[in-house]
């Protein structure tokens, strides 16, 4: 099939950027969206033009690197799918497809379709460490975790940190991402000792990075390739409130007199 692509081109972070139109000819239905772009890039290189820069790594939907807004929907709008797993059979011959990068103040565009998601790393760093016992393997039942909690923690842990939630949110809010990370550890005994500190610090880092606030539109959970649920945001609100109410612990000498 043949497609018309309207692709965002931007030299670097300081350039304004614009759309360029390209023709993608003889696209095979079984190609992924990224493979289609690879073919377009081969053509561009052959013509001596600058290829379209876009991010990808695993190309199997687990790393969260790919990040394209296709026709106004991050990852292209096929439920539970990253754009590297989106196949061209989802499109039809003659279609015009608009391809844009994630757009958020906290994710500055570096080039074309590539944005800088360092803000997410900063939030993760702000979360700090998790106390985990080392030494011999613990007895199977020494640290009981209810099955429902383990499953819920895994649902949260499924977040691959791609940033589609930020990209789609009308407020460019990172709440779903932060909610997934905070919830995952708040649900497990391993994360308990640092529970309050982690919630406070991650929320602070999120606010400092310049993301917007949540207005509960639910757009994020709809595009999340890992289908992380909006109810984790309620949990984050609860964790943060709980941490605020507990307050900073008073410094004590720890029995050292």
């Amino acid at each position: 099939m043949n497609l018309t692509l309207k692709v965002w081109r931007q030299k670097n972070a300081n350039n304004p950027g614009h759309f360029e139109t390209y023709q993608a000819r003889d696209v095979i239905e079984d190609m992924s969206f990224l493979e289609m772009l690879d073919v377009v890039n081969e053509d561009l290189i052959a013509q001596g033009q600058e290829p379209i820069a876009f991010d990808s790594d695993c190309r199997e939907g687990i790393c969260g690197t790919c990040s394209l807004v296709i026709n106004g929907i991050p990852h292209g709008g096929h439920k539970g799918t990253t754009v590297c797993q989106l196949h061209m059979r989802r499109f039809h011959d003659g279609q015009t497809i608009t391809v844009e990068p994630w757009r958020a103040r906290a994710f500055p565009i570096l080039r074309d379709l590539v944005c800088d998601r360092t803000a997410f790393d900063k939030i993760i760093q702000a979360g700090g460490f998790v106390s985990v016992n080392t030494g011999g393997t613990p007895d199977a039942n020494a640290l009981p975790v209810p099955k429902t909690d383990a499953d819920l923690a895994m649902d949260a842990a499924a977040c691959i940190g791609c940033g589609a939630c930020v990209a789609t949110c009308k407020n460019a809010s990172a709440m779903l991402f932060v909610a997934a990370k905070v919830s995952q550890l708040a649900l497990l005994p391993q994360g308990k000792p640092e529970r309050e500190r982690r919630a406070l610090n991650m929320v602070r880092a999120m606010d400092e990075a310049g993301f917007g606030a949540c207005t509960v539109t639910g757009a994020c959970e709809a595009v999340c390739p890992k289908e992380v649920s909006l109810s984790f945001i309620a949990r984050l609100n609860r964790e943060f409130g709980r941490a605020l109410l507990k307050g900073e612990p008073k410094k004590s000498s720890g029995g050292a007199g």
């Binding site: 929907i73 407020n171 917007g212 207005t215 709809a222």
Partner: peptide, 27 residues
Amino acid sequence: QLEVENKAARPTSYAQKEPGAASFASR
């Protein structure tokens, strides 16, 4: 205040944007 921050969080808007799951009331 939140609206001002939320608008500032996306200085350049998309050329094409689907509201997705966001309801009219919520927007």
